[in-house]
């Protein structure tokens, strides 16, 4: 048989096709029957709106997927980092049914973005896209200030039709006059925001006694200042007088309440959760620093 193949090129070609198609059939064609099965649908996940879709197309155009992934793996560190506070906030098949193409990526030069929606306020994204280092000092992300140019909406309706997404004339009209930045931020704010993970996370209570272990500790104030400058000053100002975030110098909340806001975030005000990025010890140091500043006025 093998000797025959060496003399018959057509036979060899056909045999090669058959051999290649076995693995292809089992691992590429057959899974279509299992993946995106209607029973795996997630009720909250809706198709993209015209503005979100345009934002997604800019994400694709700029090749954001070369540095950012969009899949949270069911691993302790992945869930803690990208779906903080939840235990099952990892990515499910039903989240992606409207993603043509998928944007899972292969390298996390920057963080995963599958749960970025709702984590920061729009103003944070605008500033960060314009000059990433103004918000994240040591970031190596390119600046995307040029996205403030007007959005080309000539194809929007055609795109919605091509993907079979529902839309209203009002939605199409609303896209006109927007910038590319608006579209990009609208897309980022959708990511992971339409699935129930965050609600479950917010419901989880912060356990343990909320007592500042570093209260009055001078070294903690120094550490806290450094942490504050790296993580908080971008929104709350180096002088604690507020900017995107509230003015902390004027805040009268007790330390325990401040701690749980920093730890768990506050979606209503666009305050991200820092519990898993910083951990309890570092957050208490930040709180100690903030308290020390209040005394000074």
């Amino acid at each position: 048989m093998l000797n025959l193949l060496e003399k018959k090129p057509i036979l060899l070609l056909l045999a090669a096709v058959v051999v290649i198609m076995i693995g292809t059939t089992v691992t590429m064609i057959a899974p279509f029957k299992w993946i995106n099965d209607p029973s795996l649908k997630i009720a909250g996940v809706k198709p993209y709106t015209p503005l979100q879709l345009e934002g997604r197309d800019i994400y694709i155009r700029e090749g954001c997927n070369n540095c950012h992934t969009q899949t949270v793996r069911p691993l302790v560190a992945d869930v803690a980092r990208y779906a903080p506070g939840s235990t099952d906030g990892y990515s499910k098949v039903g989240e992606f049914v409207y993603d043509q193409p998928h944007l899972w990526g292969s390298r996390r030069t920057g963080p995963d973005l599958a749960r970025i929606g709702g984590k920061y306020p729009d103003a944070w994204h605008n500033k960060h896209m314009e000059e990433p280092r103004s918000m994240v000092p040591k970031s190596n992300m390119p600046a995307y200030a040029f996205l403030k140019q007007p959005l080309d909406t000539s194809l929007t309706e055609k795109k919605m039709k091509a993907l079979g997404f529902p839309y209203t004339p009002a939605e199409l009209e609303a896209v006109k006059g927007k910038t590319e930045m608006d579209a990009m931020v609208a897309y980022l704010q959708k990511l992971g925001n339409d699935i129930p993970w965050r609600k479950a996370a917010a419901a989880a209570p912060l356990v343990g006694e909320l007592k500042n272990p570093s209260a009055g500790n001078a070294a903690a104030v120094t550490d806290g200042k450094k942490l504050y400058e790296e993580n908080c000053a971008q929104c709350h100002g180096a002088d604690l007088k507020g900017d995107i975030g509230v003015a902390l110098a004027e805040l009268t909340k007790p330390e325990a309440e401040l701690f749980s806001t920093v730890y768990q975030g506050m979606e209503r005000l666009g305050m991200p959760a820092f519990g898993d990025a910083l951990g309890k010890e570092k957050i208490w140091k930040v709180i100690t620093y903030i308290s020390s500043r209040k005394g000074q006025k």
């Binding site: 292809t24 691992t27 590429m28 899974p31 279509f32 993946i35 995106n36 197309d57 098949v93 989240e95 992606f96 049914v97 409207y98 993603d99 043509q100 193409p101 998928h102 899972w104 194809l155 055609k158 795109k159 091509a162 993907l163």
Partner: peptide, 24 residues
């Protein structure tokens, strides 16, 4: 893919299917 214009198209596959075809 599903073409929208000369410079833009969308993958014919969605989500995890698209990922599986892509890495095949």
């Amino acid at each position: 893919s599903i073409p929208v214009s000369l410079s833009k198209s969308y993958s014919a596959f969605a989500g995890a299917n698209d990922a599986n075809v892509q890495w095949w």
